[in-house]
Design a protein around this nucleic acid. Sequence first.
DNA 1: CATGCGTGGTC
DNA 2: TGACCAAGCAT
Length: 384
Amino acid sequence: MARRAAPAAVPPIAPPDPVAAADLGARLLAWYDRDRRDLPWRPRPGETPDPYAVWLSEIMLQQTTVAAVKPYYARFLARWPTVRALAAADDDAVMTEWAGLGYYARARNLLKCARVVAGEHGGRFSTTEEGLRALPGVGAYTAAAIAVICFGRRAVVVDGNVERVMARLFAVEEPMPGAKPSLRAYADSLTPSERCGDYAQAVMDLGATLCTPRSPACGLCPWRPDCRGLREGVAESLPRKVPKAERPTRRAVMFWIQRKDGALLLRQRPAKGLLGGMMELPSSPWEAALMPDPAEAVATAAPLAFHDWHAVPGLVAHTFTHFHLELSVVMARVGANPRVRGVWVPLDRLDEHALPTVMRKVIRHALTKGFRGADNALHPGDRL
DNA sequence: CATGCGTGGTC
DNA sequence: TGACCAAGCAT
């Protein structure tokens, strides 16, 4: 599939004329009506979409797969059926319910947005793209999606699927993100005024189910006869992207500190930045260096100082968007009432706290591999 | 405007 | 098996 040499300075092809665009739209909608996916947030034909439900789903679906979203969407909607209910929720409850879904700034903005809508807009979402765009966590894509799906306004919905479909349909060779304006212009040229909500979901569905990043199912595509990328044999290689920088590896020592009654010491991360507002085990700083000497890490970074640290064999590995993380774990038991910043959580109540996946991995590793005996007592200079 | 921001699935 | 990727947004 890899045809590398891009033709020299091929001018972009003109957007289709209105008649051709209408024909493409009609064929796409025919395909959509026949093969429509049944998704929990998608109203049946004729039903009126609930803007709260659509908004909630769109936030969750940002950079996140349908399969991952489904159980979270169901739990959120069951627990907070309206935007007013969500606005009244505790921050910690929302973060706990979101734990594991990732991109936690979305959850913080979700709550902010719910409180704006409930407190300042009488519990009703704006019906305009501009009004929606002003809400926390609602960007160009989400505003357009809600406006078109819920309120039938013609809006150009451009997500990663649409960009990929347009890049292939019009054989756009310019790499991302430079190609974004062209791709939006092509998407605009195809966006109809009638059934625009169905059209928006149809073109995204096309990208999600047929015009996939790898191995697109061109044989099933309603736009196959028109696809310039397919005709030129470059469809699968589009859209072009500049290779990503290599991800560095950061390392740290995590401190598993258990009180006499069995409770584990957790603390809350700062509200902004990586895993903002989520709970964590204390640790040495996450640095792009060799794994710290555990004794040194204990001496310089542990919240409490004492002697009976035990090393847990092995490492916990986790990959974030922009770096790899390797963690070793040391365990200690402390007295009945140590004075230290944080919260003490019984092991059978960890689920009640906003623990991101990386911390759940650490906990599982400690519970699985952690020794209790003196065999692996930590001595100065010990390496894990 | 380039960068920071999670996680699980896929091949 | 590790690299790539997903219905983006904020700064």
